[in-house]
Design a protein around this nucleic acid. Structure first.
Length: 918
RNA sequence: GCCCGGAUGGUGGAAUGGUAGACACGAAGGACUUAAAAUCCUUUGGCUUCACGGCUGUGCGGGUUCAAGUCCCGCUUCGGGUACCA
């Protein structure tokens, strides 16, 4: 019997489906293990060979855990809302739901062919009402809670209202957008509308006027992590700053907890570092500066309070509220012009063009420590959104201030002994202070502490911690997203009653904004409550649906709650999460925030959603080139191309094999090449190659379906793992795949030869047992360490050895097949059955290494001289150190290498090596 | 600029401080075959030698060590993240 992978794979995929092999239920008699893949956005292009990499890795781990007796939850679903389907809808009129369903069907078909052990009964799609019901529900909870900075957790807004009624803003610790002060009487005197407006200032989901990233091409706002270098990550469209009334989530309130939580989870250091930087905690001081001649104070934030004596000017962000106060009539027109100029610049221009710009307001401030007068400037290098939107400039010790001072000819006062600030600022926090009054003689470190203490004691400011992390803008002016469970009464937002959920996405005639410029939902008929209050027109962003999906998999059909207490307490959180690095500052921050919020409400039992996280590397493309001789239709082979003037042209990698072009296929590839001529080397056309991104335009996309068709899913799975370390990026090159395919065929040949079954019940030899148990040990270690490339090698070594032994013994082959089952489940099932088992290999027990079989009776010692290995000496494994040394020294070859000299030292590492130092 | 990763044969890669290049691809040679495919066997870092062998070799320059691809210091270079965050 031949290894007919096509037949075998179909057989077992049907078996798994019919027998519900991967159906998972709560089983309190077994320990749980939750393995999760980052669910995909189903794009129209389908899967290429890079996508399943992480899925295969997690599938191997899931199957391994199951074989070890764990009850494994391994679900899959779709991040179904997204811009591409909507852009397509705008162009073609096709409803995004249709596109999405079609793409999902295609994805599913492709995924099924690879033989994953997903429990598809738990599938979720973020665009389905049963699912987004709970996205809307969570939003309502966020609206109804505020963050208490003292308790460091979410609390009901009702409690806050009680507190306002009792004692106004006194004694409250609510994190807010803007500090407010009022008494209980003042609160009670306010209208309903005024009270609601005030409460928005505290809610975790709140509506506020914000400076947002507006993307005109997409017609929507974007979150910070959806913008990079001034353009949208999806589509690369320019983004500009705009003030708009938008829903936001007070993620920033959780900054400290998001930071602290990183210490409790098993993620890579680089990913933790990225999140730390994104959260951007900085300790400093907020200080008050008096405006000269007016009874106005304003606050700045600095981490270098020690440099207060070197402040030679102040800078306000163009958007700062202080701009109006500070601008004198004489400067008014100049300031006006500057603000206009700043407004016109897009974010991209601002980032790419680092020219120093700014304008003097005409006013001066008083240094609260030294009492000197300093000019107040406006410049867009100060950001409105960070700190207080105003800074004290210390040009001697801050490079940005330095550039500004040089440009506008402002004074620069050095504060550290011996520092040279004639060419550049001295930013390092080291040295001894000078020109700094009471701080003179201190080290910078001491001075920072002393200055903070001084600021605190003299009440000219306070010690303050700032975070770079901003609140997440949650409104999108788009159609294809979750509708907000929000209606408006008297211009104020109110939540729908939970019984009205899910609020379903309505139909619209076109997926474009209305004539009035409202979002597409403005086109929906009867988009209002039963009492005719208008509903919110924006929809939620992409990250809404992905922020709690891992919880829903635990209990996907529950119509009473996001997840039942029972399911949550059993499955708890994700033990292993595998996905790409691109989600480091988006999804992985938002879902941690979302989970912490639900944790505060007592709805989930674990504070961190993802215990261990692994980032699989990117699979890059490997492109092939042909070389066309200029102004001709003749193509010259790689090594002859330098004799001509040529243009390299991308050629479809699927018509190239081992860099040799299939000339006939090439001619049929495009009508232009029908009459192409070739200059060959030894009868072949050799192509050039390069590692590039895998993309259609490079003609280097490899489709997993094609690989499965040609080699089978097991070969694909093994080869993806064999390519290299999981976390490393590496190019896909189909050429090497024959190696793993041969391995499977060779494994098969241990079972069958010329159609007859070879398997027997003979007693295994010591060598065979050693080969098997060595492999068990290696595979177990490698799986635990996600070193799957070396596992595949270990399997190859084992099968090569058994092949050498002509071993077809059941007692060796059966454990081997179980060992291989996580990697190549189809062939493992088939061979497991061939061995006489009536159940699925998934329910077998993972073999355990017996060290007794690995004990060696002798060791081959490399004998080295000055570190250079000269010959080998086989000695008994239990020989003492002294005897090894004696034997080595007595060897006749040793004499030769000693060259008559006597050794200075002899190092013997038992079981390893002998080194003789001459 | 700052913060992370990398750099090993023609290629993908392996190596708890202890024989560098496991395992594979490719290539070369051979067996089987009318032939091809498939399969099997041998060789394969470079230089050198008829051969035994010798020299050299993990991006570059130093260092620690009996012993360094691996640890330390200083560079070069490629990739990723982030960027006026005061």
């Amino acid at each position: 019997m031949e290894y007919n992978f096509g037949e075998i794979e179909q057989k077992w995929q049907s078996y798994w489906k019919e027998n519900g092999t991967y159906k998972t239920e709560i089983d309190k008699n077994k320990p749980k293990y939750y393995v999760l893949d980052m669910f995909p956005y189903p794009s129209g292009a389908g899967l290429h060979v890079g996508h399943p990499l992480g899925y295969i890795a997690s599938d191997i781990f899931s199957r391994y855990k199951r074989l070890q007796g764990f009850n494994v939850l391994h679900p899959m679903g779709y991040d179904a809302y997204g811009l591409p389907a909507e852009q397509y809808a705008i162009q073609t009129g096709q409803h995004p739901l249709i596109t999405t369903q079609k793409n999902i069907a295609r994805y599913r078909e492709q995924l099924d062919k690879i033989g994953f052990c997903y429990d598809w009964d738990r599938e979720i799609r973020t665009c389905e009402p049963d699912y987004y019901h709970w996205t809307q529900w969570a939003f309502i909870q966020m609206f109804n809670h505020y963050f208490d900075s003292k308790l460091q957790k979410a609390q009901p807004v009702l409690e806050l209202v009680k507190s306002f009624e009792k004692s106004g803003t006194e004694n409250i610790n609510a994190v807010c957008t803007e500090e407010l002060t009022f008494t209980s009487e003042e609160w009670k005197a306010k209208t309903e509308k005024e009270q609601q407006e005030i409460l928005l200032n505290y809610r975790i989901a709140y509506l506020a006027d914000l400076k947002v990233n507006w993307c005109p091409a997409l017609g929507t706002v974007l979150a910070n992590d959806e913008v990079s270098e001034g353009v949208s990550i999806r589509g690369g469209h320019p983004v500009e700053q705009r003030v708009m009334r938008q829903w936001s989530l007070r993620v920033s309130a959780y900054a400290q907890r998001l930071l602290d939580g990183l210490d409790t989870i098993d993620w890579t250091d680089s990913l933790k570092e990225t999140q730390k930087n994104w959260i951007g905690r900085s300790e400093g001081a907020e200080m008050k500066f008096q405006l000269k001649g007016q009874d106005v104070e304003f606050e700045i934030f600095t981490t270098r309070a020690d440099t207060i004596y070197g402040v030679t000017f102040m800078v306000l962000a163009p958007e700062s509220d202080y701009v109006k106060v500070c601008t004198t009539p004489e400067q008014a027109s100049e300031v006006e012009a500057y603000l206009e100029q700043v407004k016109k610049r897009t974010e991209r221009e601002r980032i790419s063009d680092r020219r120093v710009t700014g304008v003097f307001t005409g006013s001066y401030a008083i240094n609260p420590v030294s009492g000197t007068e300093i000019p107040i400037w406006i410049s867009d290098y100060v950001l409105a959104g960070y700190g207080t939107g105003a800074i004290m400039a210390v040009p001697a010790h801050d490079s940005r201030d330095y550039a500004f001072a040089k440009y506008f000819n402002l004074p620069i006062i050095p504060l550290i002994e011996g520092c040279d600030v004639s060419e550049e600022s001295f930013d390092a926090k080291e040295g001894i202070m000078e020109n700094s009054g009471f701080l003179n003689g201190m080290t910078v470190k001491e001075a920072i502490a002393a200055a903070k203490k001084y600021v605190d004691e003299k009440r000219i400011g306070r010690v303050k911690v700032n975070y770079r992390l901003r609140d997440a803008i949650f409104s999108r002016q788009r159609y294809w997203g979750e509708p907000f469970p929000v209606y408006y009464k008297d211009g104020m937002p109110y939540m729908l009653d939970e019984s009205k959920l899910p609020l379903q996405l309505p139909e619209v005639d076109k997926f474009l904004p209305t004539e009035k410029g409202e979002p597409p939902l403005g086109r929906a008929k009867n988009w209002e409550t039963e009492d005719h209050f208008p509903l919110e027109l924006c929809t939620m962003p992409g990250f809404a649906g992905s922020s709690a999906y891992y919880l829903r998999y635990m209990d996907p059909k529950n119509d009473k709650a996001l997840v039942s207490k029972e399911a949550n307490e059993y499955w708890r959180n994700v033990d292993l999460y595998i996905g790409g690095t691109e989600h480091a500052t988006g999804h992985l921050i938002y879902s941690r925030f979302w989970n912490k919020f639900l944790f505060d409400l007592g709805l989930v039992c674990e504070e961190e959603p993802f215990k261990k996280l692994i980032n699989q590397g990117m699979i890059q493309g490997r492109s092939n080139f042909v070389y066309r001789i200029k102004d001709s239709n003749t193509f010259v082979s790689l090594n002859l191309k330098d004799q001509y003037e040529t243009t390299p042209i991308h050629v479809d990698v699927n018509i190239v094999s081992n860099d040799i072009l299939d000339v006939e296929k090439f001619k049929n590839w495009s009508p232009d090449y029908k009459s192409a001529e070739f200059i060959l080397e030894d009868g072949k056309y050799h192509c050039g190659w390069a590692v590039e991104k895998m993309s259609k335009s490079m003609y280097n996309v490899v489709n997993p379906d094609d690989i499965v068709e040609r080699y089978g899913a097991d070969t694909l799975r093994l080869y993806e793992m064999f390519l290299g370390p999981l976390e490393q990026s590496k190019p896909w090159d189909t050429n090497g795949i024959d190696g793993v395919h041969r391995f499977l065929k060779r494994l098969w040949s241990l079972f069958y030869k010329d159609g007859s079954l070879l398997v027997n019940d003979e007693i295994p030899t010591a060598d065979e047992l050693k080969s098997l148990h060595k492999t068990i040990k290696k595979i177990t270690f490698d799986i635990e360490n996600f070193s799957y490339n070396t596992s595949v090698s270990a399997f190859m070594i084992c099968v090569n050895e058994l092949f050498g032994f002509k071993c077809s013994k059941k007692s060796i082959l059966e454990p081997l097949v179980i060992l291989l089952a996580p990697f190549a489940p189809h062939i493992a099932e088939e061979l497991y059955q061939v061995l006489g088992n009536g159940t699925t290999v998934c329910d077998a027990q993972f073999p355990v290494c017996n060290e007794a079989y690995l004990v060696e009776s002798s060791v081959k010692y490399p004998i080295s001289f000055n570190g250079k290995v000269r010959f080998m000496l086989e000695l008994p494994a239990d020989m003492s150190k002294e005897d090894v040394e004696k034997t080595a020294m007595a060897n006749e070859q040793t004499e030769k290498y000693l060259e008559g000299k006597s050794p200075k030292k002899v190092i013997v590492v038992p079981g390893k090596i002998v080194n003789i130092v001459i």
